[in-house]
């Protein structure tokens, strides 16, 4: 949890995502969308500022910032 921001990337656990759309609606950079499978999907990784608001508002532990190596 103490990794530097540049080493972090958004991880989405689609098995846990219930497709509520909260992360998509309140992302300040609008880099997420609900995909064809009804789950949250990253559509614009270059513009993600890694603020972590999606992680904080996700009710399902389905989206989070983590190390980019996995």
């Amino acid at each position: 949890m103490t990794d530097k921001k540049e080493n972090l990337t958004i991880h989405i656990n689609q098995e846990w995502c219930k497709g509520c759309g909260i992360c998509v609606a309140f992302c300040p950079k609008k880099v997420l969308a609900i995909g064809e499978n009804g789950k949250s999907t990253m559509i614009d990784p270059d513009n993600c500022i890694k603020c972590g608001m999606c992680q904080m508002r996700c009710p399902d532990f389905a989206i989070f910032l983590g190390g980019s190596d996995s």
């Binding site: 219930k18 509520c20 904080m56 996700c58 009710p59 399902d60 532990f61």
Partner: peptide, 16 residues
């Protein structure tokens, strides 16, 4: 996990 609360229910947000 995953918990059984409905999609969009706030309870998971508060629990976290």
């Amino acid at each position: 996990l995953p918990h059984i609360w409905c999609p969009g229910c706030s309870h998971g947000i508060i629990m976290a």
